[in-house]
């Protein structure tokens, strides 16, 4: 009897604490502060864990014969020369492009100021697509900063801790990006699928005109870039390629193959500003 009473009191106390929790976290500022604090608390452990994991996979993958290594060095040397040449050519084209833009009265296209970051953890939940990077407030990272790799767009920062931040990937349904299709005037919104399968996540580009799908103005394999609308993502960053097209009741919809393999990336860049 006394035990039952005690259980009721404990249950009632827990209920009151729960109400207190909901009241406390009704403020977004407090929620963000607690999230940032907990992220700061857990990130040293995540860094250690990620370091150990890298060492282990490095050791496992690093066991190669001298012949294999020799072959790889040769391949990399050739690739290096090719990339240097391409880079040289692109620099020339960039300068020419800027000159022409200037002469047309356009602003010189801004170049991003990038902050390199390492991925220290991937999201442990089932329904969200997030990663944790090893840069935070101390490195001038703020919420809603675009994150990318040389291949294309990765996502944007959300919760920012002292030395770590969460990045929501473009494959998450919550990360919406305004985009345009190369070679057309078609614009739409890119977002991830709520419950993507186990493989490469598919992302979709909605709100295209039905006409574009009907008349096949949009080609399969066309590149999709950020359009710069919305204020978060800069203009012209590669998102992916059109894989499939379909006509919906009110709009056209394209399924995209992301330019970035989210399961394989280890390093990313955060766009911290623009340099003129």
């Amino acid at each position: 009897m006394i035990k039952d009473k005690l259980n009721y009191i404990i249950g009632g106390g827990f209920f009151l604490v729960l109400i207190g929790v909901f009241v406390f976290f009704s403020s977004p500022v407090r929620t963000q502060r607690v999230q940032a604090g907990f992220l700061g608390m857990i990130s040293p452990f995540l860094k250690q864990g990620s370091g150990l994991q890298k060492k282990y996979t490095g050791l496992r993958e690093g066991l190669r014969t001298l012949e294999q290594l020799d072959g790889e060095v040769k391949r990399l040397r050739v690739a290096n020369k090719e990339l240097s040449a391409t880079n040289q050519m692109l620099r020339g084209l960039e300068a020419e492009n800027n000159r022409l833009r200037n002469s047309l009265g356009y602003q010189e296209k801004a170049v991003f100021q990038l902050m390199p970051a390492r991925i220290i953890a991937r999201d442990a939940s089932t329904w969200y697509q997030k990663i944790v990077i090893d840069r935070g407030k101390a490195e001038l990272i703020e919420p809603d900063m675009p994150v990318l790799t040389p291949e294309g767009l990765v996502g944007k920062t959300t919760v920012v801790g002292e030395h770590s931040s969460q990045v929501v990937l473009i494959s998450d349904e919550n990360c919406r990006v305004s985009a345009s299709i190369e070679g057309t005037r078609e614009q739409g919104i890119v977002k991830g699928e709520r419950a993507a399968g186990a493989g490469m996540p598919a992302i979709g580009l909605g709100f295209l005109s039905k006409q574009a799908v009907k008349t096949k103005t949009v080609r399969i394999g066309a590149n999709v870039f950020t359009s710069g609308v919305g204020g978060v993502f800069p203009y012209g960053v590669m998102i992916g390629k059109v894989r499939e097209l379909k006509e919906r009741e009110l709009d056209g919809y394209a399924t995209l193959t992301p330019a970035v393999d989210f399961s394989a990336i280890e390093d990313v860049f955060v766009v911290v500003g623009e340099t003129k």
Binding site: T31, Q35, L39, S125, Y128, V159, N174, V232
Partner: peptide
């Protein structure tokens, strides 16, 4: 702990961020 790590923020534009599912529901 779960909510502190996984509470998602929604909102497409800068300054429009809102918590998707309030902290405490996992408790």
């Amino acid at each position: 702990m779960w909510d502190a790590l996984h509470t998602q923020w929604a909102g497409d534009n800068v300054g429009e961020r809102q918590v998707e599912i309030a902290m405490g529901w996992s408790i």
